[in-house]
Design a protein around this nucleic acid. Structure first.
Lengths: 110, 110
DNA sequence: TTTTAATATTGCAATATTACGATAAAGATA
DNA sequence: TATCTTTATCGTAATATTGCAATATTAAAA
């Protein structure tokens, strides 16, 4: 097979899984890391920051964009990418719930 | 190709990416959800909770275990799975940093 | 208008993931 | 011991992901 049976899970489970999946590659974590480090949009120089060919970087950027984690603005013939805060904060809310439940666990087993 | 060039990224980037990847499937999110809902170890009934065959569930459990997100204890002929808090809290620390940086951004672009 | 620069898309090869039937393994129970 | 229950592993088919060379696209600059 190879295709996930997404129709059998809740929309929220699918949504969170797709965000996690988008972040499930070191190159894409590195892109987010870099965006946070420079604390501004990046126009052009991501390719030089990563040990990957330009088409590969472009593909990773596309996946982050599809997942809503970054957004891109055309700026002349360059494109300016930055963090899409909204999705990150939605993600954070989900995780707060999860971590809260973990902390509240009675832990009476294992 | 199909293989990630993990050797070109930092250990931390690879570690976080592998946790994210493990959570990048709705079935595995559903398993974590269920573990948090029942607030105890689960011995046996995960298979009945998921819309997937037993070998498939077993495989997903293995991936969560490999990523350190759950741990399993043999309990007679059953196996008792529960959240591995340590990994989750490590994950939370990483994310706190990320979310902190996002909030602190000057947001002077895009 | 031609050239240059930046980014995206296409096409493809290598590898990984997902799913499940069949079967094995390990311990409980009759 | 024989059987049942529970979980893991094997084998395999279908599909997805990763990476890059070649090429296309788009807009600025000459």
């Amino acid at each position: 097979m190879g295709a996930s049976k997404t129709e059998h899970f809740t929309p929220k489970q699918n949504e969170i899984a797709s965000i996690m999946k988008a972040l499930g590659h070191p190159a894409r974590i590195a892109i987010i890391d870099y965006l946070l480090k420079v604390d501004t949009c990046i126009c052009g120089d991501i390719v030089n920051e990563l040990p990957l060919a330009q088409p590969t970087v472009s593909q990773h950027l596309k996946e982050l964009k599809n997942a809503g984690l970054i957004k891109g603005n055309t700026e002349g013939n360059a494109i300016c990418y930055c963090i899409d805060e909204e999705t990150f904060f939605k993600f954070q809310n989900f995780l707060s719930e999860v971590f809260g439940k973990i902390k509240a666990q009675k832990n009476n087993c294992c």
